[in-house]
Simulated assay, not measured.
Amino acid sequence: MSRTTPENHPDRHASRFTGRTALLTAAASGIGAATARRLAEEGASVLVTDVDAAGAEKVAEEVRGKGGQARHLGLDVTNPEAWPEAIRTAQEWTGRLDLLHLNAGRNLPGAIHELDDSSWHDHLRLALDSVFYGVRAAVPLLSAAGGAVVVTGSVHAVLGFSGFPAYAAAKGGVSALVRQLAVEYAGRIRFNAVVPGAVDTGLWTDAPDEYRAQTAARTPVGRIGEPEDIAAAVAFLGSDDASFITGQNLVVDGGRSISSQE
């Protein structure tokens, strides 16, 4: 029997987002790009944003080439003054915003005594402050649509991994903020986080084969995740299929966080 994956799932092309608009951050590659493709396939008009404007444009062109609706915008998510323009772009394009996927973040390795102030604060601005800026700007439009926010968290928020204190702090803050916002905006906007484990994005480009194999072996399903695995979870949480789900952190890690394998 073949394994069901996000690529061959029978419901992959369901039109859950027809007539809806999604804005995605850090969408020039990896999880963000996979989510842009997935949402467009399900009928969404997708605003692809990234600090890498050229990369965002390439993803938008790819989506349009496959018959989807997409535009792109260069966006520095750490700049609070840039966010109102991004929201206005969505509003002027379709008149609505139904899903905001806040995906920015990066690993910053190093023991805490090795980090300088600038590195620590830069990391928190990217992974946590950006959520504050984005939600603050998007609340009116999301409220009008009865929309949803999905933030990309990390298993670093629930498990301890040596050498990533800034990343863990930022993603832990994301998890707590999602719960808070879900209560604060209940009945108007749903807030959830998708919490990936090891996913084969650009962060793994230079990973040694031995380390990749070890990581896969420690994961109960026997493999590292693909960006499409996370995109499928984002699409679910952002859709009406999850209309009774809010304030949750959905772990998508192949069972690693519940396994005793070392």
Rank of each mutant, 00 (worst) to 15 (best):
V63Q: 04
E92D: 13
E62Q: 15
G172N: 05
G147A: 03
T4V: 11
A82Q: 13
R37S: 13
R37E: 11
A56G: 08
A27P: 08
A168Q: 13
L142E: 00
K58Y: 12
G68D: 07
D52W: 09
G146A: 10
L97H: 07
H13L: 12
R12I: 02
Q261H: 10
G32L: 00
G255K: 02
H121G: 09
F164Q: 04
L126E: 00
L73F: 04
V149D: 02
E81H: 15
Q91A: 11
R136W: 01
V139F: 00
E7I: 12
E61L: 15
E7H: 15
D116S: 09
V149M: 12
E42V: 12
G187A: 11
D122L: 10
A34S: 14
A70H: 02
T21G: 08
P196S: 02
G172P: 04
V183L: 12
A70N: 08
V194S: 01
V77A: 10
H13T: 15
H121D: 11
A28Q: 05
I258C: 01
P208S: 09
V183C: 13
V48I: 14
A157W: 02
G30P: 01
R38S: 04
A90R: 00
A104R: 02
V59P: 09
D240K: 14
G222H: 05
L126D: 02
V150M: 05
A198M: 09
S118Q: 07
A82M: 09
T246I: 04
A90H: 04
T78M: 11
D209K: 06
A207Y: 03
R218T: 01
D253G: 00
A186N: 05
G202W: 07
A182N: 05
P165S: 14
W83I: 00
L24V: 06
R20Q: 14
E42C: 11
N192I: 02
L250V: 00
L97I: 02
R12V: 03
V252E: 00
V46F: 07
D229Q: 14
L115T: 10
G95R: 09
T5P: 00
E262W: 10
A176D: 10
A54E: 12
A170M: 11
L203E: 09
A166F: 08
L115C: 14
R136D: 06
L250P: 00
L250R: 07
G110Q: 03
D240A: 15
E226Y: 05
L115Y: 10
A111M: 11
M1N: 14
S243L: 13
A170R: 06
S119R: 14
D50L: 08
G65S: 15
F132Q: 06
G163Y: 03
G163M: 08
L102P: 03
G19P: 01
R190A: 03
T89R: 11
D52Y: 12
R16M: 12
S257L: 12
T201S: 02
A168K: 08
L73N: 05
G65Y: 10
E226F: 09
R190L: 07
T94A: 08
S154G: 02
G19W: 13
I245P: 01
L126M: 04
D98W: 11
V158M: 12
